[in-house]
Amino acid sequence: MDMIVTLLMIFLLVTAFFMVFTKQTANAVIAFPIFGSILVVLFVIFQAPSVAMAEAVITAGLATGFFVITFNKTKDSRKE
């Protein structure tokens, strides 16, 4: 179990860094739910189901939707 937790933590860091340093905003938007999903798994492992549920629904689900909608409206995405 410790192994899985460590691996997930590393992934968490990698996705976080990817989100900040990627050039295209679209990549950051898509990396965001991945970050959220890893957190969900971690919360489940740490036996916090209520928090995991909130994380899954709000961060990984709804917030990504908001980001996609907002991103769709920026000029940057229209050109491509």
Partner: peptide
Amino acid sequence: SPGGGFVGGVVMALIPI
């Protein structure tokens, strides 16, 4: 059980979305 007003509200909001 896990959940509550905030999470349930988000799930309900998915319908109009």
